[in-house]
Simulated assay, not measured.
Amino acid sequence: MPWFVKIERGIVDKTTFDRYVSAHQEYVRNLIAKGHQAKTGYWGDFGGGMLLFQADSLEDAKTIVAQDPLIFNHCVEYELHEWCIVVMD
């Protein structure tokens, strides 16, 4: 399965954003359980974050991202890209 990356930038205040963090974490756990090998985190030096995951196609990746509570609740703007790995273990 190809890898995809969602790079995001917060667009709401922290209080609003924090309301959806638990739902986002559960969403990522669900992706992991479904075999998407998801990883999520935020930038330590500026606002925003990233979600790295596997999907069958770009269309599948778009559908997956649309279900993220941070997207669904308009907390972030994002870019979605296929990530082409050139070196692996």
Score class of each variant (00 low, 15 high):
G41C: 05
R9K: 15
R19N: 12
A38S: 09
G41T: 06
V28N: 02
H74K: 13
A38K: 03
F72Q: 13
G47Y: 10
I85E: 13
Y78R: 06
H24V: 11
I11E: 00
F17G: 00
H36W: 02
W43I: 01
D13L: 11
V65Q: 04
V28K: 03
D89R: 12
H24K: 11
A23V: 05
K34G: 01
I71Y: 03
K6C: 14
H74Q: 14
V87R: 14
P2C: 11
Y42D: 00
E79C: 06
Y42A: 03
P69E: 01
V12K: 11
V28M: 09
D18F: 13
H81N: 08
K34W: 03
T63H: 10
G41K: 04
H24Y: 09
E77Y: 03
V76W: 01
V5I: 15
P69D: 04
Y42H: 04
C84F: 02
W3E: 04
L70Y: 12
Q67P: 02
L80D: 00
A66H: 08
G49Y: 04
I32R: 14
F53N: 02
I85T: 14
I71P: 06
K39G: 03
T40E: 00
R29K: 12
V65S: 11
V87M: 09
V65A: 15
P69I: 09
